[in-house]
Amino acid sequence: MSVHTEPSADSLNAALEGLLRKYAVEPGTQWRLAGPRESRGDGEVLLVAGWSEPDAELSDQIVPLLPWRSEQRFIELRRIVAQKTVTPVLMGRLACHTDGEQMPLGAILYRQFDLAEWLTGSAIKSLYASIRGQLAANVILRLADGAICSVEAGVALPPGTPVQDRHELIAGRGVASDRTVDTQVAQASVYLWDGDGRQECTDVDFELFGRDAAEASLVRAAYEALRQPEIRPALRQAHRRLRRLVQLAFESDQRGARLRVAADSGEDT
């Protein structure tokens, strides 16, 4: 429930439009928040989830979003690190399992590699990946500040199952996590038992009420990309780097070797 990655594009566009109107943001161009498999027309800015774009190089028309950076749990984890509430981070443990339809293996790695760097504020320096086909990947990252980080990825959840993920940062002082101690999966805000059985929901955004965390964060990320067009080159740069990191992970598995990440990997020259 916490990461639903393929919401209705029409409803998300309506939600985004509502935010733009409320805050009087004028994008100055035609725009559309597009789903992974939607056709693209000319003459409009397409806002897409970065993980869904297989190509590293994107036209100026396409803005690859990193929606998790707008998700409140990750914003808070990042803040905990940045403010040295837990410090120094020595090891990260990042896990994400999907049904393979919502996010295939490469998409999970894309997301988790970005989170490893963004949450810790430290770039990936090297990686060693152990991958089984397109089914599962286990990666050990070394970050520039000396910390290590595991990335666990799997796509064996039954179709339609909400993404199951966990992010933990272990520091010399303290541990930060988006999961409660002594639990394995996300807890919900509301549980309802009625004639339809058990239902649960976690509402995180009053302005975007009714959207789950992933939908809300996608809309928020798109809103920021329209409100601040100057951040779009940085998003494209991050996308290129993340695509390169995912490619390196598969290369690492094939070569059976730890691969170093060039400092300028995927960056603009």
Binding site: M91, N138, G146, E152
Partner: peptide, 27 residues
């Protein structure tokens, strides 16, 4: 990783991955 307990002379944080002979992967 660098140690949490900097006064220990043995390791306290590490990660292991790899593969089994049947092709399964582990972490």
């Amino acid at each position: 990783a660098p140690n949490i307990r900097t006064d220990l002379e043995v390791e306290d944080l590490l990660l292991v991955n790899g593969k089994m002979a049947d092709g399964s992967t582990f972490l």
